[in-house]
Every structure is written in C-alpha cells, then in structure tokens.
Simulated assay, not measured.
Amino acid sequence: MFTRQPHKLASLTLSAALTLSVLTAGLVTAAPAHAEGQLRIAEQFGIVYLLLNVVRDQQLIEKHGKEDGVTIKVDWTQLSGGSAVNDALLAGAVDIAGAGIGPLLTVWDRTHGKQNVKAVASLGNFPYYLVSNNPQVKTIADFTEKDRIAVPAVSVSIQSRYLQIASAKLWGDQDYARLDKYTVNLPHPDATSAIISGGTELTGHFSNPPFQEQELQNPNVHVVLNSYDLLGPNSPTVLFATEKFRNDNPKTYRAFVEALADAADYIAKDKPGAADTYIRVTKAKIDRDALIKIISDPLFEFTITPKSTYPVADFMFRVGAIKNKPASWQDYFFEEPKLLQGS
C-alpha cells in the first residue's frame, strides 16, 4: 500500500494542480523536437506503463539504436492526465506521449491534416475499475451532487470516456456527459490515498492497476463499474507521436518499437522479474507478491497490438467529441507491420 498521509480533497487537488502546472510549464519551455538519436518520453502512473518500465530498466531503446548504428539518448518525464501529455507533445516538449485512447483521439482529431498525431503502439489490455467508498453507490446512477469521482483528466481521459460511454448506455447519447460535473482531476496515487482513508467528498475513483487493486483491499471500497463490461477486453492506454517525429527520426522510432516488442516478450516470460522492474523503476511501495499476482491476472495482456479501440472512436464521433470520423483503427495508428492484427 502507499504510505502517503491522508489529506483533505481540496489540498490534494491544489497540490496536484500546482505540481502539474510546474511540470507542464517546464516542458512547454523545452527545446523543439530533437534530431535523430534523441528521444523524450512522457509516461503516467500505473502498471499499464510496465512496458515502458522494462524498456527503461533494460535500456532496450539504446540497445536497438546501437544495432542500427545510432546512439540514442533517452529522457523520461512523468505527468498526470491526458491533457497535460497532449499539451507537452504539441509544444514539442516530448516526442513520445503515453496516455489513454481518449486523449489520443482528441489530439488525433485536433491535429488531423496538420501535425498528424497518431498512435505508435498499445501498452496492453487491462480492465479499469470505477470504485467507491460510498456504500450507497452501487451503480453509476447512484452518484449524486454530494459525490466526487477522481479521474486523471476530466472529460478527456479514457476513464472519463468510459464513464461517458456507460452514461450513454444508461441514459442515452444526449446525456453522455451527465456525470462529468461530478468528476475532478487528481493523479492516481493521491486519489488512491483519499479513497482508502475516506473522510473527503471524494467517494469515487476511476483508476487503473495497481491503484484499483490497492483500494479494493479496503473492505469499505467496492467496484461500481468495470471497463471490460462496457467494451470487453480492450487497450485503454497507448503511445503516440507526431508524423514529423516519425519521418525525421526513422532509426530512433524503429528502435523504440523494437524495444517495446522486446519488453512485451520479457513480461510474458518473467512475471516476477517484471514485478521487480516495476518496483525498481517507479519506487512504488507495494508488496512484491501482491504485484506479481496483479501482473499475472489472466485478464491482463501486455502487448503492443491494440484491441477494441475503435468503439471508443466511434462513440466520441457520435457524441461530437471529435469532428473527424476514422474509418478504422488504422486511421489513428501509424502503419506498423507488428500491429497488423489490431482493432
């Protein structure tokens, strides 16, 4: 479990906002896109970024770069929320961005015919849980104005999109944003602490592994919504880049994709080793055996091939969240032989 001290929600939100603004401000003033041989990656929180943890720990990008005759310097940045990640990418502060399929589609639509941001690869298939510590909340219909639901980025994050899809199924497309007014921006670690400790207006958290599993260790916390119940197994989180970076840095880009594929193979073969990597890279205060159990969950699949992302794109176009309708998942993913079986 995390050892953070409990805080009031207002303090958490303010602290998170200040931290994020400082990080983003620093990124936005960064230099423009690097030349071949340099790579800046923005990631977020959770086991869904395990592929990147392995890539970083084993220096797989550097390894594949050397095999292709280029020395690659890799810089890593951690942000919270798809909005901050998208802003950093469009500001030229990072080259590869990690965020939900929702933020990807938002920036793909925004840059369509311009910077042409597209996905590079998936980070795997994982169920995301909306949990609550309010015993009165059994379904999303039970949330009231007294409740607040933490998400990484209000209205933009994949967690927000899942909540909107669930709302549309329950109340119709015209009411897809019915619960948006109850959502607040908060990084997963801080929201987890608040849900576990209780005592704040934050009663819900749409999270990801391992935070949702840590929250559920508290008997007062229960699952309200499972993303797999909405769309079946799907890829909630992806990596994306601009068309210019891909075209201008073919060797660096290729080394990155090869590194991701190697990391996926490693995790499939060595779950304990992957758990050790996560703890070593993230410094997370989590029990090793519990982490191995989470990573070994048969519902988890660490793969670079995207799965069932198009239903999210179709929904976002249907409700007007994006203006451009993709014909298929391949419209918002770069062409890559390793991803031919995606969806």
Rank of each mutant, 00 (worst) to 15 (best):
327 A>S: 13
81 G>E: 00
302 F>P: 01
178 R>V: 06
23 L>P: 14
101 I>L: 07
290 A>P: 14
11 S>I: 04
203 T>R: 02
300 F>A: 06
165 I>Q: 10
246 R>H: 11
78 Q>M: 07
306 P>A: 09
320 G>A: 02
43 E>F: 12
257 V>F: 12
144 T>M: 00
308 S>A: 09
273 G>A: 03
97 A>K: 00
200 T>M: 03
17 A>D: 15
321 A>S: 13
340 L>A: 15
288 R>A: 08
64 H>D: 10
84 A>Y: 11
169 K>L: 06
91 A>C: 02
275 A>R: 01
168 A>P: 11
196 I>E: 06
323 K>P: 12
164 Q>K: 10
262 D>Q: 09
317 F>P: 10
334 F>E: 01
228 Y>T: 05
263 A>V: 05
147 D>F: 08
64 H>S: 09
308 S>M: 02
239 L>H: 08
272 P>E: 04
41 I>P: 03
28 V>W: 15
323 K>Q: 11
192 T>F: 15
243 E>D: 12
166 A>V: 06
50 L>W: 10
123 L>Q: 10
333 F>C: 08
146 K>S: 14
220 N>S: 13
12 L>K: 02
103 P>F: 13
328 S>T: 10
102 G>V: 06
225 L>A: 00
264 A>N: 08
283 K>E: 13
264 A>Q: 07
283 K>Q: 13
103 P>S: 06
64 H>C: 05
218 N>V: 01
249 N>R: 00
229 D>G: 13
70 V>Y: 10
149 I>V: 08
120 V>Y: 09
279 I>Q: 11
176 Y>Q: 04
338 K>W: 13
106 T>E: 15
46 G>S: 08
3 T>M: 08
48 V>E: 12
13 T>M: 14
18 L>V: 15
132 S>A: 06
29 T>V: 08
290 A>D: 15
27 L>M: 11
95 D>T: 00
104 L>H: 09
161 R>S: 07
133 N>W: 07
61 I>P: 14
124 G>M: 00
67 E>A: 13
48 V>K: 09
331 D>L: 05
75 D>T: 08
48 V>T: 15
236 P>N: 03
267 I>V: 13
251 K>A: 08
105 L>N: 05
73 K>S: 11
156 V>S: 10
135 P>T: 05
205 H>R: 05
317 F>V: 01
285 K>G: 08
296 S>I: 03
83 S>N: 12
276 D>T: 12
178 R>N: 04
148 R>L: 08
195 I>T: 02
335 E>A: 15
51 L>P: 12
249 N>Y: 00
93 A>V: 02
91 A>E: 00
299 L>F: 14
173 D>V: 13
309 T>M: 10
321 A>Q: 14
338 K>D: 09
49 Y>L: 04
125 N>L: 07
91 A>G: 04
158 I>A: 14
94 V>A: 03
77 T>W: 15
60 L>P: 13
92 G>Q: 00
52 L>D: 14
41 I>W: 04
234 N>Y: 14
263 A>K: 02
184 V>I: 14
14 L>T: 15
313 A>I: 01
